[in-house]
Structures are given as C-alpha cells and as structure tokens.
Design a binder for these strands. Structure first.
Lengths: 350, 350
DNA sequence: GTGAAAGCGCTAACAT
DNA sequence: ATGTTAGCGCTTTCAC
C-alpha cells in the first residue's frame, strides 16, 4: 500500500537521490528527468512519508500552536489564520488546548517537542515560565503573545491596547463625554492589567475626568453588577460613558443599563472589546475596540517561519517584536434598538 | 540538544531496546530497571522522537480531523472533544479546515496521508467521493458524518434528527399547537434535506396539520423573510408554531415576529436547532433541538481508535454505525423578554 | 546531472 | 529479563 520513493525511482528509471532532489528542488535536474520523476510520482499517487523525511532532516513540517481553548471564540480565528499561512508554506499545525491549565500547557509543549515541531506559537493569556525555559533549552523557535522578551529564537506579538483605548477615549470625547468610568478584568490576567493601565494613562493624557475604575471578572455578570455600582453613585459622579475591558463585560453593562429601575444618563455610551466576537452579533449597538485576531494568527506564523533557518544551515532571522494595532468599530451604543436583522450570515454547517 | 534514546540508555546503563520497551510497555521489565530507565529519561527531559518512532512502526500517533471551518461555532466543540480523547490515548490531532471547498478537502486528506496519520475523521457536511475513495485505497481508517456507508475501515456517525424532531413536535402538541410550519435550509445540503424529511415524516406520523414548509438559507435573513411569508398567510392557515432548520433561521424568525407591523399569533412558538451554539446566548428564549457536538467529536475519535489494530498485528474492529441522539432544550420561546443576564459566564481570555 | 550508500532515532525480531 | 542488530523511507555527502 505504502508507495515509497523507491517505487517512484524505479518507475522513472532514476535513483532515489534524484527523486528526492526533484521533489525538494535541492539541486538542478535535467528537465526531462524532472518530468519523468514527476510523472511517475503522480501516476503512483506518491505521497512523501513525512515521518521518514523528518527523521532524516531532524525537523518536521509541523508547527505547534498552543491556545487556551478552541471553544473560546477568541481562538478559532487565530487558529484558522495560522493554519492558512501554514498551508501556504506547505506546513501543518498541531493545535493544542491548555484549558487554562499550566500543567497541561507544559505537557502540550512536551508533546510538540516529541513531534519534532519546527516551532511553537504559544498564544495563551498567561504563560508558564517553565514553557519558555523548555523551548529555549531545546532551541526551538517560539512566538508568544504579550510576553516581554525577544531573543534569537523568541519572537513576541503585542497588541497596541494603548493606542486602541486612546482612540476610544478620543471618540467619547468627541461625543461630548467627560466623566468616563472603567470596568476591568481579573487583575491576575496580564491583558486585564495592561488594558486598565492603558485606560488610566490615556485618561490622564487627554485630561478627561477619570470616573471609577472597577475590576470585574470578564463575564456578563461582572459587567452587570459593576454597572449597578457605577450608576448608583451620587448624581454628579455618575459616569456618562463606560469603557469595559472586554465584550462580555460590556454586554453585562448594557443589560443592566436597560433593565429599568436605575437612573441612567440619557446618552450613556458603552465601549467594549470585541474579544469573543459575539458582541457584534448579540449587541449590534456596542462600540468596540477590535482585537486583530486573524492578524495575530498570521503574524504568529510569519514570526516562526522567519526564524527558521535552513535545516542544517544558516540560523534564520532573529526573533523580533511585532506590534499589532486595534480597530475602533463605532456603532451607536446608547440604546440597543430592536431592529430588523443585519445582513449578516454566519450560517451553513453541520 | 536533541536527547535520544541512546542517551537515556547510557545514563540508565541498559540497552536502547530496554529503554524502548520500558517506554512502550511492550514486554515485562524488572521493576528496578524500569525505575532506572524512567528516572534517567526524566532527568534528561527525554521526549520520544515521534518521527523516528513512526518510521519504525509504520504509522504515526496522529489522527487527522477534517472539518469545514473552525470559525464556524459548530466545530470548536467537536474538535476539542476529539482532541481530549486523543490526549487520553496519547495521540495528537491535526485539524484541517476545508473552507467548504472540495478541492481543498482532497488536498487536506493528501497532506494527512503524507503525515502517515493512523486515521482520518471527516466531519464536514458534504463529502467529496474522491476523499472516501482515496482513504479506502490507502487502507486508512476513516469516520464520516452522515455518510451512509460502513466498512472494515469505515465508520459512520449519524445524528438522530428523526427522533429529535419528533420530540419537538410532541412538545408543541402538548402546548396545544396544531398548525406547525417549517423553515428549512438550502436543499443542496444533506443535513437540510434530512431535517426537512424528518419533519414531514414526523408530522404525518403524529397526525398534526402540516403548515407550509419553506426552504431558506440557514441564515438569520432567510428566517426573517420566511417568517414574513408564513405569517402573512390567510388567518386560518397562519401557523401557531414554527420549526426552523437551524438556530440562525430561528433567530431570524424571532426577530421578524417581534418587529411589529405583522399579525402574530399570541402564543407563537418557535423551535430551532442549536447548531451554532449562539442561540442560547442571543435568544435565551428559544427552544432548540440540541445537536450533541461534543459527543460527535468523542465518538469520532473512538470510532477511529477502535478500528486501529496492532501496528503489525490484528486488524482491529470493523467500522460500524454510531447513532447519536439529540436533546430537546425547552425554553419559553414566545416572547424574548428582556431579563437580567443569565448566570452564564463564557468569559476569560486574552 | 546523477548514483551509491551512510545514517537520522527508533522498534522488533532474534539471541542470550 | 535484557542485549544486538537489521531495517523503517528519506536526505545528503561524496563519487562519478
């Protein structure tokens, strides 16, 4: 069943070396030979045995992609973009979920090492230092998300929350808002800390009056209750705009604001992040700071790819820092009107 | 850098064969030797070189999982369940998106064959016959979704829409509904056809009065307009309940029903499928027929796993048919009330 | 421009 | 219970 390089060689009347070289384009071959080989390979339906190839080359055509959980809508787009790039370069990706578990994360990386992956992208929110250490020791190219470091075999992607939030605040300013509150995420998450800091810095920079900043849980419920607190303040300190650290939080805010039995500023404006992508669907009225998911995936691949040297040759480029911008998506965010459905169409499956 | 089996053998003072056997548990070893080997492996941070192993064994520790598009919320859960099972059996999965493209699907399978995968799960809606043929020819274990066939190396998973819809209709009957309409999906999709047929059969069986059955596009918009048509009918033929072939369609129906300017039965009931999972989130009031996504993923893995024989030994079990049931999730589906947020929490990510 | 042959790291007979 | 060793299918040096 297994059709090997020998079969192709035999059929083409050449040596296996030639077949190999034709297939990998590693050295010039006479066009006629080339033809014969290609034809033979095709006729036999030959598929290169990657296992053997990898063994010989010492590295596989696999990249590892470690994410928190593919069920979290934040990741599918990243993963898809990563794989699309991989396909373009004739590589494949093994995507592993850590389920937010450090131990499982380390294990995943060990598995990947066993698979002889050519590189690993770790795009989870928190990264176990043991992982970076392991990858470094094994001299495997790696790219991380919002990890500070960069090295010969370590690239880093960071999201420009600072600019994104500044943009959002500017927008609110144009709308006439002056008292702006913030609802953050769990302080133990790096992204939550960075977003909050960006908000505070940006407020200071623009000279706007910082309302309260409350930490919540990145969930709908957290946003809901945080909003209660904010709106229950004495009249002159009730914010007229709220920036929420992610979209679920923002959805919670909107829910609360329209539940009634609460004094809500006429023109309350809410801004969220489009982290989990449902925002647009569930709350077509929510203005969001869009995180460039596809770009993250694409960039992660490129980062790894660029660090890859020739199998036994030059070392490839050094890792570097990639900074990705956000996009402010403006939708009226005061009252979620009940409108006819958007022309969106996310369907077709099963 | 690369730590090989020899290093472990040396450090443990045994032969490579012993190390191999300890690691794979292929033959009894004296506990003390076992210990020494394990310890040495651990101390060195040894990770089995899968490429070499696969080459020797003739088969990799990889399963292929071919899906339409991981960005479609139907798939992440399937994929995650599949991978969780894989992990349990010390295997890995390479997940490939076809983007609903036959050509890309065939290509994906070819890639997987090159990777020497031990089996392939093709869980897309439509399956190119060339794919089944190729897999069959290469004698690779395969499992499909709603493909009729079953064979020595071909398993099949089918969803029991029939029962699911019957259950839904029974429920509507209990609620007192008699005139029930149906909005289907694009007839070129197998799942759409199967669901529609199940509806019609079930209606006939229960003796309920079948309202109109309209084909739509599996999208929100399609549901919206189909609903317009249904409710615009002459009074005595206006349905009091609508079954929609997927959840986006159902959401469209709900949107339309509550847009005003249309005569809507007091107690209009709507039932959808929870295909894309957002239904619960966006429309907590929609009763749905739940497709068992995780179970599909889990079953797909099990199907492949059971067909795997010993590398060079017995052939493993023959492929068989797996039938998976649906679950009817009852939520009031008449008027989507604007309530405080559910205690749901899908949050936490980067 | 092409071929012969030595491994890549592991497994699995076959020995002991 | 453990060691020796011949490949697995490919790449790649070294000859030609």
């Amino acid at each position: 069943m297994a059709i090997g390089i020998k079969d192709v060689a035999a059929r083409a009347g050449v040596s296996t070396a030639t077949v190999s070289h034709v297939l990998n384009g590693n050295r010039p071959t006479r066009p006629t030979t080339r033809q014969r080989v290609l034809q033979a390979a095709n006729a036999l339906g030959y598929a290169q045995n990657q296992a053997a190839r990898n063994l010989a080359v010492g590295r596989s055509s696999l990249f590892g992609l470690v994410i928190s959980d593919i069920r979290n809508p934040f990741f599918p787009e990243i993963s898809a973009a990563f794989q699309d790039q991989a396909l373009l370069h004739d590589m494949d990706a093994v995507v592993l979920n850590t389920n937010y578990d450090d131990h499982r994360m380390l294990n995943s990386v060990k598995r990947l090492i066993g698979l002889q992956v050519a590189g690993v992208a770790v795009l989870t929110s928190e990264i176990d230092p043991a992982v970076t250490a392991l990858l470094e020791e094994r001299e495997i190219a790696a790219v991380y998300l919002d990890l500070g470091k960069v090295d010969r075999l370590v690239a880093n992607i960071s999201i420009d929350y600072e600019h994104g939030i500044a943009e959002a605040l500017e927008y609110l300013g144009q709308l006439g808002h002056r008292r702006i509150a913030y609802i953050g995420g769990p302080p133990h998450l790096l992204s939550a800390r960075r977003r909050k800091q960006a908000f505070l810095d940006s407020m200071r920079a623009t000279g706007l009056e910082a309302g309260h900043a409350i930490d919540a849980d990145f969930g709908v419920k957290g946003g809901y209750f945080a909003c209660s607190k904010l709106l229950a303040a004495s009249t002159e300190s009730v914010p007229t705009a709220i920036v929420a650290a992610n979209d679920l939080t923002a959805i919670g805010v909107l829910h609360r604001a329209h539940d009634g039995n609460l004094r809500v500023p006429e023109d309350l404006s809410v801004i969220g992040f489009d982290d989990i992508l449902m925002a647009e669907f569930t709350q077509p009225a929510l203005t969001t700071v869009a995180v460039p998911r596809s770009e993250i995936g694409r960039t992660a691949f490129q980062a790894l790819w660029s660090m890859l040297g020739e199998p036994g040759g030059e070392p490839g480029a050094a890792g570097r820092e990639f900074r990705l911008g956000t996009r402010l998506i403006k939708r009226q965010s005061a009252l979620p009107p009940r409108t006819p459905p958007e022309e969106r169409d996310a369907s077709d499956q099963s």
